[in-house]
């Protein structure tokens, strides 16, 4: 992203949110740029949803401030903020038709009836639900409700759209479709999206940048590639992708220093145990304990000499499930480029 807009769309300035003794958000600092698709990724209870709710105005920081396009909105009620939300449970108004749901923001603003109807129909076209305006939310499928919620949140042309795990209730196939569609829609309308999810794959697929949350703090902010290839902490390495951590004596045996590091499973090659190792490579001996055939690729669980375990993923270019299963129990040498050994700071 080469967006050099000096004022971030959203700024968190040392934001805390405590519920009694529980520190749901514990000192978050963050800038989200204008027009970004930005994801808050983290397990449940990590503070990502609370952060989103504080941007929407449903919750107030215990301390710290939140800025929207440079204005301090920390104490503003939701109805005075130029952001709109797509809720996890869609939160459609059950007593209204789909059209009235979508037009609600304009109705509250006392827009003329023809304008409301015309804009609401445009929004329904945008989310590819033309002609369903007369129905009640109860007559729609989950995916359709999702789109109505999206249309309703977009009708006021907010500068920031907040999405709280919007695809969580959909089945896998539909979710993947909607991921692509949401991303395309964001590029089409060109507004900032803040997307909350616990699904790392979703976060990597859709985001321009993402923040990984844990225990009310942000562990790392970066593009999907940065987060995946260069995790900053053990937590990020474990939460995004397969956790492949080596620590203690085993790490010293490989790197020469006693530093915890991670290496992504697809970076590792499996060689014969006595194979020569070229310079610029890290290597370790081990024994294949488990072989999991996954169609497109195979996952090997390798017990390392001296303790610990690494997961290795290999594409099934010319092998079949028959071939790979004979590998179980075999002594091997694992080899990867030194640059793929990511030394980690911070304790998870």
């Amino acid at each position: 992203m080469s967006n050099q807009n000096p004022t971030p769309a959203i700024r968190f300035e040392n934001v805390h949110r405590h519920f009694g003794e529980v520190k749901a958000v514990d000192g978050v600092n963050l800038d989200v740029l204008d027009g970004e698709f930005f994801t808050f990724l983290g397990p449940s209870g990590s503070g990502k949803t609370t952060c989103l709710r504080m941007v929407a105005g449903f919750d107030r920081p215990t301390s710290g401030r939140i800025f929207l396009h440079g204005d301090d909105v920390s104490e503003l009620p939701p109805y005075e903020r130029d952001v709109n939300t797509v809720f996890q449970d869609y939160a459609l108004f059950p007593h209204m038709t789909v059209l009235d749901n979508v037009a609600y923001g304009l109705t509250v603003r006392k827009a003329a009836r023809e304008q409301r109807t015309r804009r609401a129909e445009e929004m329904l076209d945008l989310v590819r639900l033309p002609g369903l305006g007369k129905r009640k939310p109860s007559q729609l499928s989950g995916g359709q409700r999702q789109r109505v919620a999206l249309a309703r949140a977009l009708i006021l042309r907010p500068r920031v759209l907040l999405l709280d795990e919007p695809l969580g209730a959909l089945d896998l196939k539909l979710r993947q479709e909607m991921q692509v569609e949401l991303k395309a829609l964001q590029e089409q309308v060109g507004i900032t999206f803040i997307y909350v999810t616990h699904d790392q794959e979703e976060a990597l697929t859709m985001s321009d940048r993402l923040a990984v949350f844990s225990h009310g703090r942000i562990e790392q902010v970066g593009s999907p590639a940065e987060i995946y290839e260069s995790p900053a902490t053990e937590f990020v390495a474990g939460f995004v992708g397969i956790s492949n951590l080596v620590r203690g004596d085993v790490a010293r045996g490989i790197l020469g220093t006693d530093t915890t590091f991670s290496v992504r499973p697809e970076k590792i090659h499996i060689l014969e145990p006595d194979a020569a190792v070229q310079g610029g490579m890290d290597s370790v001996r081990g024994r294949i304990e488990e072989v999991i055939y996954l169609g497109m690729y195979t996952r090997f669980e390798v017990a390392l000499e001296g303790g610990g375990k690494l997961t290795v993923a290999q594409q099934n270019l010319e092998t079949s499930s028959m071939d790979v299963h004979t590998a179980r129990g075999r002594e091997v040498r694992l080899v990867w480029e030194k640059s793929h050994s990511r030394k980690l700071g911070g304790q998870a």
Binding site: A56, P78, Y79, Q88, A91, P94, Y104, V108, R152, L156
Partner: peptide, 11 residues
Amino acid sequence: SIVEASMDLGA
């Protein structure tokens, strides 16, 4: 959340 949705949309 329908109450929050309403406030979110300006009511």
